[in-house]
């Protein structure tokens, strides 16, 4: 371990740190549960006679009013700029920016938190593994815990892991302002205006629509198996039943796809969905997009020049 700085620490410090981490994670889980439960309580039938924007009902924030095309370009561009940074500190700044976007858009926090939690497993792997597997370099600081001398803890690895987690969270937080502030068809239309082939956009919408149909079908079939005594176990028999189950799911979806296509054709489908919606561009759209991209650019420059991410 040529030249790396070694710091010796007693083992309980490591255990303590792990405990604190696990505690934080559990706490976050609990909070999310509470938040979600709170969100669902006023379950009255929503008024569907007004156009609602996916998930975040009736928003009128700056994000909701933003032209979809500009929003897509600006936030996607911003995401790539964030990903290009290297230091955990710039990731932290990016998180703050993204978080302010969530607040600005007036979106419920619970959904954003759920997205973060969904990837927490994958990211936790980095946090646990990177410090142990990062290759020691001369400038690195290694923590050596008593009793675990053969497993030095590389602080640079921790830094790398934190940067990754930070960037992932920053982009994940952007997803809600990006997608939940306009209806999906509108977002897709924005995409097609930006050059994504119209057919591909329609495919996304169709797949999204039938996702729910198949989820329901899959759920009913699972219940059907359950009431005949099927329980998932670690066994070949279980795998065989799962194989049949998947097969049945595919058969039903292939059959449905033909029926759907028939129905489309019989209402005059000739290869394209008619959807001439209207986009109005204002100066504020330009301004907003430009400022997001500039922010991202500034962050990247700051990261590369000052924080010394090389």
């Amino acid at each position: 371990m040529g030249g790396a700085e070694l710091i010796h620490l007693p083992l309980p410090v490591l255990l303590g740190a792990l405990l604190v981490l696990a505690g934080c994670w559990l706490l976050a889980l609990k909070m999310l549960k509470l938040a979600l439960a709170g969100e669902q309580e006023p379950q009255q039938e929503r008024d569907w006679s007004v156009p609602v924007i996916d998930a975040a009902a009736g928003g009128s924030s700056i994000f909701h009013r933003w032209d979809v095309r500009f929003k897509l370009v600006a936030l996607l561009g911003f995401a790539f700029l964030v990903v290009a940074t290297r230091s955990p500190w710039s990731a932290l700044v990016a998180i703050c920016l993204s978080f302010s976007a969530v607040l600005l858009a007036g979106l419920p926090l619970a959904r954003s938190m759920r997205r973060l939690l969904a990837m927490s497993g994958f990211l936790a792997m980095f946090l646990l593994i990177m410090p142990l597997t990062a290759v020691p370099r001369p400038a690195d600081t290694l923590l050596v815990f008593s009793g675990l001398e053969y497993l030095p803890f590389n602080l640079r690895g921790l830094q790398l892991a934190l940067a990754i987690i930070g960037k992932a969270c920053a982009v994940a937080l952007l997803m809600e302002p990006l997608l939940a502030t306009a209806s999906l068809p509108r977002t897709i239309e924005g995409l097609t205006r930006l050059g994504v082939p119209e057919k591909v956009g329609q495919m996304i919408l169709l797949a999204h629509r039938y996702l729910f149909v198949f989820l329901e079908e899959a759920r009913r079939m699972a219940t059907g198996m359950q009431v005949r005594g099927f329980r998932r176990r670690t066994s070949i028999a279980t795998l065989q039943v799962m194989g049949n189950y998947l097969g049945m799911l595919f058969v039903r979806s292939f059959e449905r796809t033909h029926r759907v296509y028939d129905a489309m054709q019989s209402r005059g489908y000739q290869g394209r969905f008619p959807a001439p919606a209207y986009f109005a561009v204002s100066v504020s759209d330009w301004l907003l997009a430009a400022s997001w991209l500039l922010l991202g650019l500034a962050l990247l420059l700051f990261d590369r020049l000052w924080l010394g991410g090389v």
Partner: peptide
């Protein structure tokens, strides 16, 4: 107009509005 057996096959757009519009625009 053909009313198919399973209405899920026939409602292939994201909202009712789009679905009803589909034929009209065609």
């Amino acid at each position: 107009g053909v009313l198919f057996q399973d209405p899920d096959d026939q409602l292939f757009c994201s909202t009712l509005y789009d679905d009803v519009c589909f034929g009209l625009l065609n």
